Simulated assay, not measured.
Amino acid sequence: MKTKFNSFLSISKVLIVSVIIGLGQMACSDADDPVDEMKKQENPDDMKGNNSGDAPDFSLTSLSGTTVSLQDFDNKVLVMFFLGNSCPACKTAAPKIQTQIADAYASNSNVAIIGLDQWNGTKASVQGFKNTTGITFPLLLNASKVASDYNTTYDRLVVVNKDGDIVFKGTQGASKDIAAALSILDDSL
Protein backbone atom coordinates (compact mmCIF):
# COMPACT_ATOMS: atom_id res chain seq x y z
CA MET A 1 0.00 0.00 0.00
CA LYS A 2 2.83 2.38 0.90
CA THR A 3 4.53 1.71 -2.47
CA LYS A 4 1.35 2.57 -4.38
CA PHE A 5 0.98 5.78 -2.38
CA ASN A 6 4.63 6.77 -3.05
CA SER A 7 4.11 5.99 -6.72
CA PHE A 8 0.98 8.16 -6.75
CA LEU A 9 2.92 11.03 -5.09
CA SER A 10 5.69 10.76 -7.69
CA ILE A 11 3.23 10.84 -10.58
CA SER A 12 1.41 13.78 -8.97
CA LYS A 13 4.65 15.74 -8.64
CA VAL A 14 5.52 15.12 -12.29
CA LEU A 15 2.06 16.27 -13.38
CA ILE A 16 2.24 19.41 -11.26
CA VAL A 17 5.69 20.32 -12.58
CA SER A 18 4.50 19.68 -16.16
CA VAL A 19 1.51 21.96 -15.68
CA ILE A 20 3.68 24.71 -14.19
CA ILE A 21 6.15 24.49 -17.06
CA GLY A 22 3.32 24.54 -19.61
CA LEU A 23 1.76 27.60 -18.01
CA GLY A 24 5.12 29.34 -17.94
CA GLN A 25 5.59 28.76 -21.65
CA MET A 26 2.11 30.10 -22.37
CA ALA A 27 2.62 33.18 -20.18
CA CYS A 28 4.45 35.06 -22.90
CA SER A 29 3.10 33.85 -26.17
CA ASP A 30 1.67 35.46 -29.24
CA ALA A 31 -1.60 33.64 -28.64
CA ASP A 32 -4.72 35.25 -27.26
CA ASP A 33 -4.49 35.79 -23.51
CA PRO A 34 -6.72 33.33 -21.61
CA VAL A 35 -7.53 36.05 -19.08
CA ASP A 36 -8.74 38.26 -21.94
CA GLU A 37 -10.81 35.38 -23.23
CA MET A 38 -12.50 35.03 -19.82
CA LYS A 39 -13.16 38.76 -19.73
CA LYS A 40 -14.74 38.60 -23.20
CA GLN A 41 -17.12 35.97 -21.94
CA GLU A 42 -17.97 37.98 -18.81
CA ASN A 43 -18.46 41.29 -20.61
CA PRO A 44 -17.94 41.10 -24.39
CA ASP A 45 -18.33 44.85 -24.92
CA ASP A 46 -15.46 45.49 -22.52
CA MET A 47 -12.83 43.81 -24.70
CA LYS A 48 -13.87 44.67 -28.25
CA GLY A 49 -11.07 45.70 -30.57
CA ASN A 50 -12.76 49.07 -30.97
CA ASN A 51 -13.49 50.62 -27.60
CA SER A 52 -14.63 54.15 -27.00
CA GLY A 53 -13.97 55.83 -23.74
CA ASP A 54 -11.78 58.33 -22.04
CA ALA A 55 -8.17 57.23 -21.87
CA PRO A 56 -6.89 57.25 -18.28
CA ASP A 57 -4.20 59.82 -17.60
CA PHE A 58 -0.67 58.69 -16.75
CA SER A 59 2.67 60.19 -15.92
CA LEU A 60 5.73 57.97 -16.36
CA THR A 61 9.47 58.33 -16.76
CA SER A 62 10.88 57.47 -20.15
CA LEU A 63 14.05 55.49 -20.76
CA SER A 64 15.75 58.82 -21.55
CA GLY A 65 14.72 60.23 -18.15
CA THR A 66 11.95 62.63 -19.21
CA THR A 67 8.47 62.61 -17.71
CA VAL A 68 5.77 61.66 -20.22
CA SER A 69 2.05 62.05 -19.65
CA LEU A 70 -1.08 61.58 -21.72
CA GLN A 71 -1.46 65.36 -22.07
CA ASP A 72 1.80 65.43 -24.02
CA PHE A 73 -0.17 63.85 -26.87
CA ASP A 74 -3.13 66.22 -26.96
CA ASN A 75 -4.44 66.63 -30.52
CA LYS A 76 -2.46 63.59 -31.69
CA VAL A 77 -3.41 60.01 -32.36
CA LEU A 78 -1.40 57.98 -29.87
CA VAL A 79 -0.44 54.36 -30.44
CA MET A 80 0.53 52.63 -27.20
CA PHE A 81 2.47 49.35 -27.30
CA PHE A 82 2.20 47.60 -23.95
CA LEU A 83 5.15 45.26 -23.56
CA GLY A 84 7.10 43.07 -21.21
CA ASN A 85 10.81 43.86 -21.39
CA SER A 86 11.87 40.22 -21.80
CA CYS A 87 8.73 38.87 -23.50
CA PRO A 88 9.71 36.96 -26.68
CA ALA A 89 6.44 37.81 -28.48
CA CYS A 90 6.93 41.50 -27.63
CA LYS A 91 10.48 41.36 -29.00
CA THR A 92 9.10 39.87 -32.21
CA ALA A 93 6.32 42.46 -32.50
CA ALA A 94 8.47 45.52 -31.77
CA PRO A 95 10.39 45.68 -35.09
CA LYS A 96 7.11 45.25 -37.00
CA ILE A 97 5.55 48.08 -34.99
CA GLN A 98 8.65 50.17 -35.70
CA THR A 99 8.48 49.72 -39.46
CA GLN A 100 4.72 49.55 -40.01
CA ILE A 101 3.69 52.31 -37.61
CA ALA A 102 6.57 54.39 -36.23
CA ASP A 103 8.53 54.64 -39.49
CA ALA A 104 5.43 54.84 -41.71
CA TYR A 105 4.03 57.80 -39.74
CA ALA A 106 7.34 59.44 -38.76
CA SER A 107 6.64 62.49 -40.91
CA ASN A 108 3.06 62.88 -39.62
CA SER A 109 3.07 65.26 -36.64
CA ASN A 110 -0.47 64.13 -35.78
CA VAL A 111 0.69 60.62 -34.80
CA ALA A 112 2.79 59.49 -31.84
CA ILE A 113 3.85 56.06 -30.63
CA ILE A 114 5.17 54.96 -27.26
CA GLY A 115 6.10 51.65 -25.67
CA LEU A 116 5.15 50.98 -22.05
CA ASP A 117 7.01 48.34 -20.04
CA GLN A 118 4.33 46.90 -17.82
CA TRP A 119 6.71 44.35 -16.31
CA ASN A 120 8.33 47.21 -14.37
CA GLY A 121 11.81 46.17 -15.41
CA THR A 122 14.98 48.00 -14.59
CA LYS A 123 16.24 50.74 -16.84
CA ALA A 124 18.92 48.31 -18.06
CA SER A 125 16.38 45.60 -18.97
CA VAL A 126 14.22 48.08 -20.91
CA GLN A 127 17.34 49.44 -22.64
CA GLY A 128 18.19 45.84 -23.52
CA PHE A 129 14.72 45.47 -25.09
CA LYS A 130 15.32 48.61 -27.13
CA ASN A 131 18.79 47.48 -28.22
CA THR A 132 17.60 43.99 -29.16
CA THR A 133 14.61 45.15 -31.17
CA GLY A 134 16.13 48.25 -32.78
CA ILE A 135 13.09 50.40 -32.05
CA THR A 136 13.43 54.18 -31.89
CA PHE A 137 10.12 55.24 -30.34
CA PRO A 138 10.13 56.25 -26.66
CA LEU A 139 9.86 53.55 -24.01
CA LEU A 140 8.26 54.29 -20.65
CA LEU A 141 9.22 52.57 -17.41
CA ASN A 142 7.09 51.09 -14.62
CA ALA A 143 3.82 50.99 -16.55
CA SER A 144 2.02 48.12 -14.79
CA LYS A 145 -0.51 50.49 -13.21
CA VAL A 146 -1.16 52.12 -16.59
CA ALA A 147 -1.80 48.70 -18.15
CA SER A 148 -4.22 47.98 -15.34
CA ASP A 149 -5.92 51.37 -15.78
CA TYR A 150 -6.30 50.64 -19.51
CA ASN A 151 -7.54 47.12 -18.75
CA THR A 152 -4.92 45.55 -21.01
CA THR A 153 -1.87 43.34 -20.80
CA TYR A 154 1.57 43.02 -22.39
CA ASP A 155 2.01 42.44 -26.12
CA ARG A 156 -1.03 44.58 -26.91
CA LEU A 157 -1.71 47.74 -28.90
CA VAL A 158 -4.03 50.54 -27.79
CA VAL A 159 -4.93 53.57 -29.92
CA VAL A 160 -6.11 56.85 -28.38
CA ASN A 161 -7.65 59.45 -30.72
CA LYS A 162 -7.03 63.21 -30.76
CA ASP A 163 -9.89 63.72 -28.29
CA GLY A 164 -8.32 61.40 -25.72
CA ASP A 165 -10.73 58.51 -26.32
CA ILE A 166 -9.63 54.90 -26.56
CA VAL A 167 -10.68 53.90 -30.07
CA PHE A 168 -8.83 50.59 -30.31
CA LYS A 169 -7.78 48.06 -27.71
CA GLY A 170 -6.09 44.96 -29.06
CA THR A 171 -7.30 41.59 -27.88
CA GLN A 172 -4.51 39.48 -29.35
CA GLY A 173 -0.77 39.66 -29.77
CA ALA A 174 0.42 43.03 -31.10
CA SER A 175 1.82 41.45 -34.28
CA LYS A 176 -1.64 40.17 -35.14
CA ASP A 177 -3.33 43.51 -34.37
CA ILE A 178 -1.11 45.88 -36.36
CA ALA A 179 -3.40 45.98 -39.42
CA ALA A 180 -6.50 46.62 -37.30
CA ALA A 181 -4.70 49.32 -35.29
CA LEU A 182 -3.51 50.97 -38.52
CA SER A 183 -7.04 51.04 -39.89
CA ILE A 184 -8.33 52.76 -36.74
CA LEU A 185 -5.31 55.10 -36.72
CA ASP A 186 -6.02 56.19 -40.30
CA ASP A 187 -9.73 56.69 -39.52
CA SER A 188 -8.76 58.84 -36.51
CA LEU A 189 -6.56 61.28 -38.45
Rank of each mutant, 00 (worst) to 15 (best):
I21E: 00
L63W: 00
C87S: 10
F73H: 09
N75H: 14
D32W: 07
P95M: 02
F81D: 11
N161M: 11
I16H: 04
R156F: 01
T133L: 07
T153P: 01
L157D: 07
L185Y: 12
D32I: 13
D45G: 08
E42I: 05
N110I: 06
A147Q: 01
K39C: 06
A124F: 00
D32P: 12
A124E: 04
S175Q: 10
D186E: 15
P56V: 00
S107D: 15
K2G: 10
N142F: 06
C28Y: 14
N161Y: 12
L189W: 11
Q100N: 13
D149H: 02
V79F: 09
M47L: 12
M38W: 05
N131W: 00
L9Y: 04
I97D: 04
T171Y: 10
S69D: 12
D177T: 13
S183H: 12
L139W: 05
N161E: 12
N108M: 12
D46R: 13
L23V: 09
T152I: 05
S62F: 05
N151H: 10
V68Y: 00
S69C: 11
Q127R: 00
L189H: 09
S7C: 07
S59I: 08
F168N: 06
A104L: 13
D30F: 07
L83S: 09
Q25D: 05
T66F: 11
D72P: 08
K96T: 11
M1G: 12
L116M: 13
V77M: 13
N161S: 12
S109I: 07
T3M: 10
G24T: 08
A112Q: 12
T153H: 08
E42R: 03
G49P: 09
A31N: 14
K176S: 14
L139A: 04
P88H: 07
T152Y: 01
I16Y: 00
T171C: 07
Q71L: 12
I178T: 05
A179G: 11
V77E: 09
S175H: 06
S64R: 03
A106S: 14
K96A: 14
M26V: 09
K4Y: 11
I166F: 02
G134F: 03
V35F: 12
A180Y: 08
I21F: 04
A93K: 01
N75K: 14
T99Y: 10
Q100R: 14
Q98S: 03
T67A: 14
G22W: 05
L157I: 13
Y150A: 00
S52P: 00
V77F: 11
D177R: 14
F137M: 02
Y105F: 15
F82P: 04
P88G: 02
Q172R: 15
G134N: 06
I97N: 03
A124K: 06
K130M: 01
G115L: 05
S188M: 10
Y105G: 12
P44F: 11
C87L: 03
V159E: 06
K2S: 09
S148F: 01
D186S: 15
D57G: 08
D74H: 11
Q98D: 01
D149G: 02
T99F: 03
S148K: 05
Q71W: 08
L182N: 15
S183K: 15
I114L: 07
A180K: 15
L70T: 10
Q71K: 15
